[in-house]
């Protein structure tokens, strides 16, 4: 909690410096927030180019809002996550439904190295995430892949903490069901 408060105030200070025209602060804030937003948007949309557009738009909105930022509220990164989430939702609603296919998985018996196995697992998870309902996907990605706390996720999704816990739990159950058939192929049994 203390770390969150500290991070929030540090980001607010950087944002104030950006308003004053400090380019180093803009670089620091970009390097702090943009990679996380890009990764989050890519997982929500399943499309790298669209994720880049969302990241750029979300950061631009942060710069525009910066002069009116009130310190002591949520961290700027939380605000950008919320903007990115809304932008992703808009894009997903405009999009036709698509059914992603799981990738060709490596055969664990064939002696694949650990790095390839990990990449395959990550890719399988990314594709399984795209099969989740949007809100469940959002909650699972923010909680388990972005590592945010439930209160922060609740602020981003504009719901209560209990709703976040419920969405995360349902999302994980569905993910487990989707990935159940792939666990052996992905070497899951070797790790547990």
């Amino acid at each position: 909690m203390l770390r969150e408060v500290s991070e929030s105030s540090e980001q607010s200070v950087l944002l104030a410096q950006v308003v004053a025209g400090d380019q180093a602060a803009a670089r620091a804030l970009t390097d702090l927030i943009a990679p996380r937003i890009l990764r989050y948007a890519a997982r929500m949309l399943g499309n790298r180019e669209e994720a880049e557009d969302v990241t750029q738009e979300a950061m631009l909105r942060l710069w525009k809002m910066a002069p009116d930022w009130v310190p002591g509220q949520a961290a700027p990164s939380t605000w950008v996550y919320r903007v990115a989430a809304n932008l992703c939702t808009d894009r997903l609603r405009r999009r036709r439904p698509m059914l992603p296919e799981l990738p060709d998985l490596p055969d664990p018996a064939a002696g694949q190295d650990a790095q390839m196995m990990r990449a395959a697992r990550a890719q399988a998870l990314e594709l399984a995430l795209l099969q989740l309902p949007e809100r469940q996907r959002e909650a699972v990605v923010l909680r388990h892949l972005e590592g945010l706390g439930n209160p922060e996720i609740a602020a981003i999704m504009m719901v209560g903490v209990e709703a976040v816990e419920s969405l995360t739990a349902r999302g994980k159950r569905r993910l487990a069901a989707i990935l159940a058939g792939e666990r052996a192929a992905l070497g899951y049994d070797d790790d547990v």
Binding site: A124, L125, H144, L175, L186, Y188
Partner: peptide, 12 residues
């Protein structure tokens, strides 16, 4: 059961 998948995805 999802821990290894999350771990692999976070490693990127």
């Amino acid at each position: 059961p999802l821990a290894v998948f999350f771990e692999a995805a976070r490693a990127e």
